[in-house]
């Protein structure tokens, strides 16, 4: 048998995952709590990673992820195609993350408060200064991400933080692939303009 290409293997694994989802969703819809818990275990880590890209706080990411799972559990009957569970769940989680950001006016302050002490606590003493600086820059990036229009921010986070393909982003956002590409492109353009202004540090852009 010829060696299977990596992309083929990925594709096979993906379709297996979808068929498992379909089976679990079918059982969960029929009232099998264990089946939904299996879905929770399956998507808990990817969902927390996705949400961390929004809120930059693992505890908040966990809280929002649990909330998203609860909403998915309650609204499972509204899911049209069982195969679309993943993108549907991600959409719920993204909406919840936006709710959380909007509700939490203290979010920006928490970032500012934590960045110095967290960075210093977690990083080795040698080169700590540059490590702190790069962490600060990442915070600046997240802050600028938060200033993007929701549609662009979501597309950029899914592409550049989560590492999704355009086709997956389009599925998640329920839009054509071209629209997803344009949103990513425009979002990146704005970020570059705001972070790359000559003579200004990344965190200093206020436009």
């Amino acid at each position: 048998m010829p060696a299977q290409k990596a992309s083929d293997r990925e594709s096979t694994r993906g379709s297996t995952g979808v068929s498992e989802d379909v089976e679990l969703v079918r059982r969960a819809s029929a009232g099998d709590s264990g089946a939904f818990e299996a879905l929770v275990l399956r998507y808990e880590t990817p969902l927390r990673k996705l949400l961390y890209g929004y809120v930059l706080d693992w505890e908040v990411a966990e809280d929002v992820a649990q909330d998203a799972f609860l909403l998915a559990y309650r609204k499972l009957g509204n899911l049209g195609e069982a195969a679309a569970f993943k993108s549907w769940l991600y959409r719920i989680a993204i909406n919840r993350a936006h709710d959380e950001l909007r509700r939490s006016a203290r979010w920006g302050r928490r970032l500012d408060r934590n960045v110095g002490e967290e960075a210093l606590a977690e990083l080795p003493a040698a080169g700590a200064e540059s490590a702190v600086e790069s962490r600060l820059l990442r915070r600046a990036l997240v802050r600028e991400l938060a200033r993007l229009p929701k549609s662009q921010r979501t597309a950029v986070v899914l592409k550049d933080v989560v590492g999704m393909k355009y086709v997956e982003i389009a599925e998640c956002l329920g839009c054509p692939i071209g629209t997803a590409q344009i949103r990513v492109h425009r979002g990146r353009q704005k970020l570059r303009r705001r972070l790359g202004e000559p003579g200004s540090k990344a965190g200093g852009g206020t436009r």
Partner: peptide, 9 residues
């Protein structure tokens, strides 16, 4: 910057 953020995630 995105690479750093991806590593964190």
């Amino acid at each position: 910057l995105f690479e750093g953020l991806r590593e964190e995630c």
